[in-house]
Design a protein around this nucleic acid. Structure first.
Length: 275
DNA sequence: GCCCAGGAGATGT
DNA sequence: ACATCTCATGGG
């Protein structure tokens, strides 16, 4: 299946942007299991080649139904914001399966991108479902049901460290009825507050789950890079990261989180420098 | 050895 | 409400 006129840089969006950690790259093809289906993507001159899922699903996952030029124009009054969006025309903010997003961002706490990716792979290869395809083998992340069967020691053996108990505890909560699939339909403040009940989920991880897994486009994750850029580029003087989160949402509006991804990437990769 | 990484949780004030 | 500590692990 060919997805025509797709304005997306697969390597930038799926690998470099640190909003997901499960895609593997092999010979120009990108592979991951999405909602129980092994998916392979590749760029051609005409668009995105896709094996394993239909066009509507992929368009939604890659957020291709959104006008990112219009997004940039929402920030005409904030030059640094507009510049960051226009600097990366191939970067999109993904709409990912919420459980996978929860697992990945529990792993992300106080961790670096390359190691998060490695832990995600370890977890998938040991406890996920294996899919053999003509292009190679892919592994899903473990389901909540599989994860609660793991003991803490076996997860620590993979290198996840103190996050082992968080993974098991959040899996338990989901099995016991925590409404992860309702978060997308809730107002932001309610959804954010509910997520804090899960072990391993604080203010920042909750915002990542809402932004990358629940279509809550105003969710604004504040990590070390975002704190730095908010103070430097936007002169915010909020006392701490929680206050920065609230002030940034107020300043950037309903699509604050989409902007956040461009700002984060510009700061982390040096596309825009600090003074 | 040190500091850092898409921080969270526990404790003390 | 806010400040401080600890928690694994690998890389620079």
């Amino acid at each position: 299946m060919l997805l025509a006129n797709a304005q997306v840089d697969l390597h930038l969006t799926l690998v470099d942007s640190a909003q997901c950690f499960g895609w593997i790259e092999r010979g120009g093809w990108f592979g991951q299991v999405l909602d129980g289906k092994p998916v392979w993507l590749a760029r051609t001159e005409d668009g995105i080649l896709c094996e394993g899922c239909d066009a509507a699903y992929l368009r939604d996952y890659l957020d291709l139904n959104r006008d990112y030029r219009a997004l940039a124009s929402e920030y005409d009054h904030l030059p640094a914001a507009k510049r960051a969006i226009e600097m990366y025309p191939g970067l999109r903010v993904l709409n990912q399966p919420v459980w996978d997003t929860l697992v990945m961002f529990i792993l992300s706490a106080n961790n670096n991108v390359s190691r998060i990716r490695r832990l995600c792979m370890q977890l998938s290869e040991h406890f996920g479902v294996q899919y053999d395809t003509p292009r190679g083998t892919l592994y899903s992340l473990p389901s909540p049901e599989r994860l609660v069967q793991c003991d803490e020691a076996s997860l620590r053996a993979l290198g996840v460290g103190y996050r082992a108990s968080y993974l098991i505890g959040s899996a338990r909560a989901v099995i016991d009825g925590f409404p992860i699939y309702d978060l997308a339909g809730m107002d932001y403040d309610s959804a954010h507050a509910r997520l804090l009940a899960l072990p391993g989920v604080g203010d920042k991880v909750a915002d990542c789950i809402l932004l990358f897994g629940c279509r809550q486009t105003s969710a604004f994750p504040v990590d070390v890079w975002v704190e730095k850029l908010l103070r430097s580029w936007f002169r915010l003087q909020s006392a701490n990261r929680n206050a920065l989160r609230k002030d940034a949402r107020r300043m950037f509006g309903d699509h604050a989180g989409l902007l956040q991804q461009f700002l984060y990437h510009a700061a982390r990769t040096g596309g825009m420098t600090f003074e």
